[in-house]
Design a binder for these strands. Sequence first.
DNA 1: ATGAAAGCGCTAACAT
DNA 2: ATGTTAGCGCTTTCAT
Lengths: 394, 394
Amino acid sequence: MSSTDAAEAMMRDGMWRGGSASGLGQILKSRGGVIGVWRGRRRRYRFHVATLKDIAQETGLGLGTVSRALSGAPKVSPATRRKVEQAAKRLGYQTNALARALRQSQSKAVGLVIPDIENEFYTSGAAILQDVFAREGYRLVLCCSNSDPETDAELLASLVERRVDGIAHTPCSPQGAQVIRTLSPTLPIVEYARRSELDSVDSVTGDEQRGSAEIVDHLVGLGHASIAMITGPKDLSTTQARLAGFDDACRRQRLRRRDCPRLVGAYDAEWGREATLRILRDHPGVTAIYASSSRIVLGVLETLREAGVSIPDDMSVVGFLNPRWYGVASPPLTTYELPLKEMGDIAARLLLQRIDAGSDQSSHERRSVRIEGRLVVRQSTSRPRVGPVPRRMA
Amino acid sequence: MSSTDAAEAMMRDGMWRGGSASGLGQILKSRGGVIGVWRGRRRRYRFHVATLKDIAQETGLGLGTVSRALSGAPKVSPATRRKVEQAAKRLGYQTNALARALRQSQSKAVGLVIPDIENEFYTSGAAILQDVFAREGYRLVLCCSNSDPETDAELLASLVERRVDGIAHTPCSPQGAQVIRTLSPTLPIVEYARRSELDSVDSVTGDEQRGSAEIVDHLVGLGHASIAMITGPKDLSTTQARLAGFDDACRRQRLRRRDCPRLVGAYDAEWGREATLRILRDHPGVTAIYASSSRIVLGVLETLREAGVSIPDDMSVVGFLNPRWYGVASPPLTTYELPLKEMGDIAARLLLQRIDAGSDQSSHERRSVRIEGRLVVRQSTSRPRVGPVPRRMA
DNA sequence: ATGAAAGCGCTAACAT
DNA sequence: ATGTTAGCGCTTTCAT
């Protein structure tokens, strides 16, 4: 049975099969008749959605008056306003946000593109962004690029096509939102967590360089002299900052370069596993692992457990960020925590300011906010064991 | 400096201060002149965004032809098509999805409303939904209700206003999407993870009743006779299913009702903490805790740790779902795992089918899919300790 | 194969 | 205070 046939059958029978009887009855009554109508020549059956025109006819008022009454404009008599509101409710009127956005050239929507929807780094920020924007009357369109630059570009483009009023973006390549900057040089953009090469966008990042350094200092303070760092793609700003902090601190602490291997790969658990295996195999002298992402740390912990390496006795482990489960991990993890909520909040405000400023982008330069975190010391780090480390490979 | 002033300054100077010089230059060249224009009387400065009309003028073709060429319609000569495509690229044309949606009465967007953006139960599903829909040309608008029915209703309404083609919903009250069903009786809706009272929507849920039962059976098999269950709001379908499964299994296993307290509260870590304290205080005989949410389980683990109760020696703990960190928790957690990816995939397909079916909703009845999970046994459960349990309250 | 024109639902002049 | 009208940018007849 095709769509058209079904619709025709419905019209004939004058009833709706399998629908929600109560809701339907209500609307039927409100319109005082059959609500199914044929729309033009498309022969496409649709329930009639009430429009301003319907309200205008129903109340005998003009289109403009109805529009003003509903949008709370000043010059409407109280009586008229009430009449319009009642009619609107009776007809089940819902603003068509598409038409409004088209007309007003602003959609009251902002886009958010993040690389990983299952990572608290981004979801924490997303949660706050949504809160802030909701309060200002904006809707958040959340998209996930899965760390794929191509998907990232597509998502950004589709947001531009949907005419969002601004974009919060966690770039997954150094180019960032370059693709859309060409098309839309003034669209407000703020980068959250990571920065791209784009110089026409604001950004909010953690002080990851300092975080890395604090981690190294902490470990050296405990007596470690051979620390391995596992991190993600080299071209990301976060990775670079973390590596820089690590290198600086190692140099400052006079650790030998080859005692402190850096394993550059991806921000996921699989790379954490792989890198840990390599450390155990190729760098037997390493006594501490700094896993610079909560996803990497999962792989590290799993692999050390499988290899029978005990933490922190045989190997100290430090994570990054501070998802709540770190506190109940085996053992609870030492880490560098960033105030994600605050970062999200700032990002939202920066973006809102740009949006409110309209096209007056020239009045302020790029703003880059860097937020400090703090070292959280738990049980996954301790003095290195003296003497040979017993290891049993899986 | 107001927006208008800045715009005027820009017009005078003929330059853009602080913008991306390269991108701008490109567009400037492509338009053969200044791209900033005054739009009507609004006195609102905007960069001109290329429209079909611009392409029509540029190519000397008609509006309709340009539209057809760009949308890959059949009756366009290859030469024309090429000409149009080149002009489009030159002008940096981007479809206005708002206008298209308004005209076509379909937005190629679907909404997703979940109660908690930091819970893998929903983000896993969201990730899959996005993938499936992206493949079909739909954009996902993700919203988070923070488990607040009022916010939930607002978000749903705003999605209707934005004229999404369908909605995937995890209700946070028994009413579910009732609010919008009244206004829009045929809008395709699928419920993910939880079900509401609405009988006009499809749903995909886990077999939570069975999960609860398997957990109880597992614990009884180990020798436990006093099991506490901590769960969320009573009126949610998931809670009810989990409670029913728990009760059934307890009865079947001939456990005494009062040995198996059920603590009904919220699906968050704070309730997990509070409930655990109550169990330790009010139910000293309990030897196993079933925490029916991964957020609750965090509070349970934290509190037991603080109270010096060792797992599983003093207390067995069972979680729900299977986030990856369960495997590296202290100790690794026994749990009932659901195939979230599969559930999300099915939800997406159900919704797509409804959308494709158009208004032909009468042809199929409500479809409720329930997916089985599996018990994953790890180290957090063991035989109960015989004799008195040593406990030290924090 | 292409052009002209109507109109999706709304807002914002402008006229009354 | 209210009515009328002209579009926002697009698709889709209908005519050529």
